[in-house]
Amino acid sequence: MIGVLNVTPDSFSDGGRYVRRSDAVQHGIEMREQGADLVDIGGESTRPGAERVDADTEVSRVLPVIRELAAAGVPLSIDTTRASVAAAAIEAGAAVVNDVSGGLADPAMAKVVADAGCPWILMHWRGHSRQMQDLATYHDVVAEVRAELAQRVDQALAAGVRPDRLVIDPGLGFAKKAEHNWQLTQRLGELLTLGYPVLFAASRKSYLGALLAGPDGSPRPADQREAATIATSVLAVAAGAWGVRVHDVRGTVDALKVWAASGAPRLAGS
Rank of each mutant, 00 (worst) to 15 (best):
A87R: 14
V100G: 02
D10C: 09
V96H: 01
R187D: 12
L184C: 02
V141I: 08
R32W: 11
L188F: 06
R130E: 14
A261N: 08
A158I: 09
L184V: 04
K257C: 12
A156M: 09
L267V: 14
A156H: 10
S22W: 00
G16R: 07
D106P: 02
G28L: 07
A94N: 04
A92D: 08
I90K: 02
D10P: 02
D54G: 11
A71C: 06
T81F: 13
D134H: 14
L76C: 09
D14W: 09
T57M: 06
V7E: 04
D40P: 05
R21N: 04
A202F: 01
A87W: 00
D216A: 13
V113A: 08
T193K: 12
N98F: 02
A236M: 05
P265I: 04
P163E: 13
S218G: 06
W125T: 09
G160H: 07
S77I: 07
L122M: 13
H27D: 08
G16D: 04
S270T: 15
A178L: 03
L188C: 09
D248N: 13
Q133R: 10
R67Y: 06
G214L: 11
Q131A: 13
I168E: 04
P107M: 12
A158V: 06
S206R: 15
S206M: 12
P197Y: 03
K177R: 15
T81G: 07
R21F: 01
H128A: 14
G214F: 10
Q151F: 10
S233C: 15
A114Q: 05
C118E: 00
G251E: 09
L267M: 11
P107S: 12
R225G: 00
P119T: 07
A116Q: 06
H128K: 12
Y207Q: 08
L135C: 05
A261M: 15
A55Q: 09
A87V: 07
A89V: 01
A178I: 02
L5S: 08
V167K: 04
E144Y: 00
E30K: 13
G73N: 03
D106C: 06
V19C: 10
R52I: 11
A264S: 15
I2Y: 05
M123W: 01
L194E: 03
S60Q: 14
S101F: 02
N98I: 05
I90M: 04
R21A: 11
G214N: 14
L5V: 13
V161W: 01
P75M: 12
V96P: 00
P170Y: 03
E33K: 13
M109V: 10
T252Y: 11
S270R: 12
A239G: 08
A94E: 07
L256E: 03
T46H: 04
D254N: 14
S101D: 08
P163W: 10
G49A: 03
F200T: 13
A105Q: 07
A95T: 15
T185V: 12
R225Q: 10
R67I: 10
P9Q: 09
V249N: 00
L235A: 15
R146K: 15
R250T: 09
V97S: 02
V100M: 06
M31L: 13
G189L: 08
A150V: 03
A105K: 02
A158P: 02
R21Y: 05
T57I: 12
S270N: 14
V142C: 09
A147G: 13
V253F: 08
A158T: 13
W120M: 03
G42L: 05
